[in-house]
Nucleic acid binder design. Structure first.
Lengths: 338, 338
DNA sequence: TTGTACGCGTTATCAG
DNA sequence: CTGATAACGCGTACAA
């Protein structure tokens, strides 16, 4: 069963059926240039009758626009992506754009690098560290519209970016742990080096410590990697070696889950023996046992805004260079409150 | 900042740089037709030097293939989609296909219906009830390759489909509740009418009842809608009216969560006062309090297989018409075991 | 307000 | 093995 080439209908057939030229059909479809209402009606009738759908490739070739935006992510490996993808998809569709998605993680050298780019999209949403800086540079140089999501622009490039208040969020969390809950020994499960959210969250942690005259202790920091398994490993290791902290701040909720599992395996009670907090407020957080204290990041909203901005950039409009969305402390039982 | 039209490099530039014709460049890129190794080398060098990327639109126009597959979903509104999207994306990329995603839910009449289709993809993955039957029919008639995911083919159409063993899974769950746990009054939170998974799961429930000589009681069935909020509502309603069941079987884990919240609000203990089980085994299920007994559905695997089959269909190869993936009972505490 | 005709960047069919 | 060159379906000056 192959595509039926015989009765494939193109703009030519529509034009003939309507008794006008292809140019007029094009004008009607794209609402470019004036057309008599009655002429337009004939065209619409023809389109309806023949069930005509414009060929995207031909349209793209002629107009040099694909009407598609691309989303580049590293790997769809966490609940984090559900609200993000939803926000991006919905907004893209509302803007009349198709959405292309590709992950860049674990690409072997055989596959063509970066299947998404200037050749098949009008613009790109680049998530976190999904694309190496050199490639971002190249795309910027050739003028491809881009918006960065959960990362900031490389220096001097001024690419619009949409992020959440990572540093302040982490800062507030640690302030709260110190001031309200009275903790002084706060362990930190940091995110991956390459991920900017990770960088800022750690900075917020350190700033809060400094502000409270608590010396930064590298032994209280281990890799969570924004990853359940990695965090599990690190925390188990800590437990074996007799971690002195009374609370663990996981840099994201996924690593918090890994930590929680490790602690339960070690038969440590949360929060009585050791408290635990995270970052993001993914859906799971509220349902954990105990429910996880965390910092809520407006993931879906960030995604929507990123797409809206990308569309503006594509249309040549001006946009904010840096959008920072507020985060919010969400207190649940895992921190020892209540 | 607009796309830099000036030094846009096309196949022509590559050909000139390499000192060959565009036809040869095309042959090298697509490995179609014989080319001397040394000629090929020159072409590769030129591509590298000029950083040439083929224009997807032009390629699509000329070859009548887009090298893209489309995914149609109703709405990205649940954790269910994370493994599914992951499976689809990874497999699509491994097959050298771009992935277009669009949701069809809540489309107003203004937006063009079904942005994905014969005009911009080589084939479609159609999830559940994301597309009305008439549209499936139309696409089938014009010969667009399709694979149905979590739904079966309309009668007489023989469109390949990939599903999980819903009926057997539900049947085993209820068998277990009756035979091992001794329940007789089993309430059922059914899924949405339009969703085929919902249909089969209910049938499995009914078959098990019948096999154990337990009369089917419509009062024990309410709408969960594969939706947390809807299930919450229905269960609260039940509680108010004094539900007589000792266990609730939610047709998916999302509705199980809604049920769990409603039960907790009513200060009913799970499983002591009333037990609760679900279907799917989304990641959350294991972390609920109490952990949710459920039926594991191989969501990511189903997605991978669907894409593999679609690619085969696109290449004109034969595929299984019906793929049914096994489900598996996952016993956790919410059902009253242990 | 409408039609003609050229070009968009590739692939594919021819000859050579 | 390689090179011209005609499609591919549509947008858009330019003309009318």
């Amino acid at each position: 069963m192959q595509l039926d080439d015989s009765n494939r209908i193109t703009i030519v057939e529509v034009a003939q059926y309507a008794g006008v030229s292809t140019a007029t059909v094009s004008r009607v479809i794209n609402k470019t240039g004036p057309v008599l209402p009655e002429t337009a009606a004939k065209v619409y009738a023809a389109i309806e009758a023949l069930n005509y759908k414009p060929n995207a490739a031909a349209r793209g070739l002629a107009s040099r626009r694909t009407n598609a935006i691309g989303l580049l992510v590293d790997e769809i490996n966490s609940e984090f992506f559900q609200p993000m993808l939803r926000g991006i998809e919905v907004t893209a569709r509302a803007s009349g754009m198709s959405l292309l998605i590709s992950s860049t993680g674990g690409m072997d050298k055989a596959t063509p690098p970066y299947p998404l780019g200037e050749n098949n999209t009008d613009g790109l949403i680049i998530f976190a560290d999904s694309l190496p800086q050199e490639e971002i540079l190249r795309l910027h140089k050739i003028g491809l519209p881009m918006v960065l999501l959960h990362r900031s622009s490389p220096p001097n490039l001024n690419i619009p970016c949409v992020t959440v208040e990572n540093k302040i969020g982490a800062r507030r969390m640690v302030d709260y742990l110190i001031e309200e809950r009275g903790y002084r020994k706060i362990a930190f499960l940091e995110g991956p080096d390459s991920h900017e959210d990770a960088y800022w969250r750690k900075l917020g942690y350190q700033e809060s410590l400094a502000a409270h005259n608590i010396p930064f202790d590298p032994k209280l920091v281990s890799l969570g990697g924004f990853d359940e398994a990695q965090a599990h490993l690190s925390v188990s290791h800590w437990v074996e070696q007799g971690l002195k902290a009374k609370v663990i701040f996981a840099a994201d909720d996924d690593s918090a889950i890994g930590a929680m599992i490790a602690l339960k395996e070690a038969e440590l009670r949360i929060p009585e023996d050791i408290a635990l907090v995270g970052f993001d407020d993914i859906r799971l957080a509220a349902y954990l046992d105990p429910p996880l204290t965390t910092v809520r990041a407006p993931i879906e909203q960030a995604a929507r805004i990123a797409v809206e901005q990308l569309v503006k950039v594509i249309h040549g409009e001006e946009v904010e260079l840096k959008t920072l969305l507020p985060t919010e402390l969400v207190i649940r039982r895992s921190c020892g409150c209540c």
